[in-house]
Amino acid sequence: MELRTGMVPLTTIQLDSTDAEVLDQELQRRKNEAPALFNGLPSLLSLADYDEESLPAEQLTALVECLRQHGLAVIGVRSCPAHLQPACQQLALADFGKQSAGRSRKAAVEEPANNANSTEAASDSETANAETNEASAAELPIASTTRVHQGNVRSGQQLYFDGDLFIIGMVSAGAEVLATGHIHVLGALRGKALAGVKGSPDATISCSRFDAQLVAIAGQYQLFENEHALMNQSVLVSLEDDQLVIRGAEK
């Protein structure tokens, strides 16, 4: 046996509501957008800001069961309050300690220039600073915001990343790449590329050879049934006033 430590990307789930039914609907909606999104996705559940009243133990059990039913592999919790600890043990959830930068990730994508723009993100990073000493192990960046995928994404394959996706290779027709942030393809893009899938209008898609079946940014999508004027050229796709704009990258 060998024990190794390493950093692996994990998705942190921040709930808007503690109602299992609301969560169920939300998960279903996201699944409709990207069917393979949750398949075995290793994830943590953030439990910061909850007390005994706002989230009783049995409610947590219902939420976790709901997440797991939708295919998410919930493996642990962050910032677990004392009253939920026994329930977490029963649900076989590891305690990943206090929350840190993980939570401002979404904000980072939406506001790349100014990380601490929203009050929420600001208060969050303050808390993180205050907690640095007592939870230094948990401060390790467990998720990187850019994933580099080396190799081709073949027909029928789907690649999803919570952050920016950098693909060194081609995306074949019939393949799908999705990211909550930007998507760069250093190669031909012949399949579908969906950037900003959690609603970031600032996300972009770039590729060195454009022949996509579909591109989408923050839910705005465009299909390419006929040959596009910029076919096989390098392009940058962005969202301007809710309209997808495709530009040749040279200009």
């Binding site: 081709n152 019939g174 393949a175």
Partner: peptide, 13 residues
Amino acid sequence: VRDSDRIIGILQS
């Protein structure tokens, strides 16, 4: 060609 692309993906995974 499309099916071959698919099978290459399966070979690689």
